[in-house]
């Protein structure tokens, strides 16, 4: 229920003759709408620094990619040195380590 005071408050506020906004406020709004397009846009230093760092990072990355690409392209042409084939035949030596002196030469293939 709305009591008497609340009704009277609403009535009094509605009847009150309040002043209109002064012209300065409308002027402020008008000034806000003026976009300073003629003024050169300020360059912020952090933008320049971050742009430079980003460029350096991209250049470094490209260099790494190019180097890796060159290495991969030249790899099939390389001649690898011959590697000794370890003998896998069972050794009489109980030692698990490989002893070159224990290598038994394979029998030569003879012509028939």
């Amino acid at each position: 229920m709305t009591d008497d005071l609340e009704l009277r408050l609403r009535d009094s506020f509605a009847a009150a003759q309040l002043p209109s906004a002064p012209p300065s406020l409308a002027r402020t709004l008008a000034e806000l709408s003026i976009e300073p397009e003629t003024a050169p846009r300020k360059r912020r230093p952090w933008v320049l620094v971050s742009s430079g760092v980003a460029l350096l990072l991209v250049a470094g990355f490209l260099q790494i990619v190019l180097l890796l690409g060159n290495n991969a392209a030249s790899a099939p042409n390389q001649v690898l040195p011959p590697t000794p084939i370890p003998n896998t035949s069972p050794s009489s030596s109980p030692s698990p380590s490989f002893d070159p002196s224990s290598v038994v030469p394979l029998p030569r293939a003879t012509d028939r």
């Binding site: 309040l18 002043p19 906004a21 406020l25 409308a26 709004l29 806000l32 709408s33």
Partner: peptide
């Protein structure tokens, strides 16, 4: 929307501030 505030909206804002502050 801000720049397009109507005269009535400006009046309302000014009156609200006036009623709260009691000083034009």
């Amino acid at each position: 929307r801000l720049l397009g505030m109507s005269r009535a909206e400006l009046d309302r804002a000014y009156r609200l501030a006036g009623l709260l502050l009691g000083d034009a």
